[in-house]
Design a protein around this nucleic acid. Structure first.
Length: 204
DNA sequence: CCGGTGATGTTC
DNA sequence: AACATCACCGGG
């Protein structure tokens, strides 16, 4: 928390495709009761209002309503019954767009991230094999688990008095590469995925 | 490869 | 009320 965190005006200053790139190199921080965890954002995807892969595409419902609120709002959703993903809402109020955070390079609270990732919530709660630091936040479901992001953050804002916020860029000198997005069936040709080129913490 | 898992949106 | 869909992950 403090002077390094991005103000709402930052999220409001760019269109969604630009914001998805501007967030690369910034530090996502979660100040939870268990401790602080954080990581550099190394991979994002943009979801636009005219984009069939976007949850808010031709839909304005209870679930997608936060996507229509002001930029800097947090959109968390359940996917495949088991995993949560976190998005930064973008663009003006009334336009349903967001940026999905897909991978982090862990910085703070790495031990806590390991603890959170070490169990899966099956009936048996059996242990999964040990993960390396590189694997801790490599994927949208994994990073939400490692960061301890819960559904209660949904529809909150990324203010510095929030428990979840984003700091100004830690990395400044890098190249951005773009590609098609992962795991979707529509809008497959759109090059709306952005990564820090040559970063080892990007997902496959 | 393939199945687990449950909310959501759409259709009937 | 029933069904198809899904911005994922881990086991094999």
């Amino acid at each position: 928390m403090g002077k390094n965190s991005l103000p709402l005006s930052f999220y409001q200053s760019y269109d969604t495709l630009t914001l998805a790139q501007k967030l690369l190199g910034c530090e996502l921080v979660h100040d939870s009761p268990d401790g602080i965890t954080s990581g550099i954002i190394v991979e994002t995807e943009a979801y636009l209002a005219n984009d069939p892969a976007c949850h808010a595409y031709n839909r304005r419902t209870a679930r997608t309503e936060p996507m229509y609120s002001q930029a800097g709002t947090i959109y968390v959703y359940l996917i495949y019954g088991m995993y949560q993903c976190v998005n930064v809402v973008s663009n003006a109020e009334g336009i349903g767009e967001a940026v999905l955070i897909r991978a982090l390079q862990p910085v703070q609270g790495i031990e806590l991230m390991h603890q959170r990732r070490s169990l899966i919530e099956t009936k048996t709660a059996k242990k999964i094999k040990a993960v390396t630091v590189k694997e801790l936040c490599r994927g949208p479901g994994k990073l939400v688990k490692a960061m301890g992001i819960e559904r209660d953050l949904h529809n909150n804002q990324l203010l510095d008095e929030s428990t979840l916020y984003i700091n100004k860029p830690e990395f400044l000198d890098f190249e951005i590469a773009s590609s098609v997005r992962i795991g979707i069936n529509v809008g497959v040709a759109l090059p709306y995925r952005f990564i820090i080129k040559n970063n080892l913490f990007v997902s496959k």
